[in-house]
């Protein structure tokens, strides 16, 4: 079976607040799923239930076909989980901490030593293994948390905001670590940094107010944007009117917007009907009229726009 994570109708209530409202999700081996959503959307709560820290009020979470609530030990053996903020024992050194984790994970002797060495090398902790964790920088602490979660080479990796608060180099390092492991694992990563989804995730799941509001590849999601595949051109202002008429005649152009008009240059955007590709037709039409644009490019839209589009279009505001 390749579906390593199966969430079915997961629901969690805190008093009257429904934090997670019937989330169903399947993650296969080789997938990196990015959990996106505003703060308080239920990302962390969902991950806590999948990792076996919280009991769901309804629904079930299965990891490698073990129900997390019914067979917690078997399920937890297959999970590597890094809680938000990567907590670890401050008075320990990374080495003693990883030894403790190895022991609890049932790794012994040479197997434990190899796993620890390999993990330390992977997370580049070599320089700090004898320092206490509380004295380490945030980036190192995060790596210790990550090391703990991958030590036993789990089938399922659940990482709650693994790059939050890291500098760009550290972020890059964590992302490449995740990408390296992606092939043989099912990985779920929560984030609110949308560029991360493009960088590491094969699929994005957007959660808002405890529900999944979008699920697809980053390309699928961008396809939802009205200006996906729109063509933006920049040309000299004196040609602008001619260009507009030319564009209007192109089949598939729904609307033409003037994005900016300067003394010399003007920017126009042609929005396609139903997000079809119009770039070649637009270029043809301009060429026919002997109009030379300075610049012509096809817009993809970015995930930030998708995110805003999806998570704010409903009425009311998200609960904190």
């Amino acid at each position: 079976m390749s579906a390593l994570v199966v969430l079915e109708g997961l629901t969690k209530r805190f008093g009257s607040l429904v934090a997670v409202d019937g989330i169903s999700l399947t993650v296969e081996k080789g997938e990196v799923v990015g959990f996106l959503g505003p703060n308080g959307a239920g990302k962390s709560t969902t991950m806590k239930m999948a990792a076996g820290f919280l009991e769901p009020d309804e629904g079930s979470a299965k990891i490698c076909s073990f129900d997390v609530s019914l067979e917690p030990r078997a399920a937890k053996l297959h999970i590597g989980y890094m809680p938000e903020g990567a907590p670890s024992y401050g008075e320990m050194t990374p080495l003693s901490f990883l030894r403790f984790i190895a022991e609890v994970r049932g790794l012994k002797g040479a197997a434990a030593r190899n796993a620890i060495d390999e993990t330390i090398a992977r997370t580049e902790l070599e320089g700090v293994v004898y320092q206490t964790i509380e004295t380490l920088s945030k980036g190192f602490k995060r790596r210790v948390g990550l090391a703990q979660s991958i030590l036993h080479d789990p089938d399922v990796l659940i990482l709650d905001e693994p790059t939050d608060g890291l500098d760009p180099n550290q972020k890059h390092h964590v992302r490449s670590l995740i990408s390296d492991m992606a092939k043989e694992k099912a990985i779920v990563v929560s984030t609110h940094i949308l560029e991360e989804v493009d960088a590491v995730c094969s699929r994005a799941v957007i959660i808002d107010r405890g529900r999944i509001v979008a699920d697809g590849t980053s390309r699928d999601l961008k396809f939802r944007l009205p200006h996906h595949n729109a063509v933006t051109i920049r040309l000299s202002t004196k040609d602008a009117d001619a260009a507009r008429t030319a564009l209007a005649s192109v089949e598939g152009v729904a609307k033409i917007e003037v994005l900016g008009r300067g003394k010399n240059l003007t920017r126009l955007r042609a929005l396609p009907t139903s997000r079809r590709s119009i770039a070649t037709d637009v270029a043809e039409a301009l060429k026919k009229k002997k109009l030379q644009p300075e610049e012509l490019f096809v817009e993809q839209g970015n995930l930030d726009d998708v995110f805003r589009e999806i998570t704010t279009s409903d009425t009311g505001s998200a609960d904190a």
Binding site: K48, A51, G52, F53, P72, R73, K76, L77, I79, Y81, P83, G85, P87, S88, Y89, G90, I101, V104, R105, G106, Q148
Partner: peptide, 14 residues
Amino acid sequence: RAGTMELLMTLPIS
């Protein structure tokens, strides 16, 4: 306080 409860309770320990 340190948040390690979440770590401890998601390890395969009862």
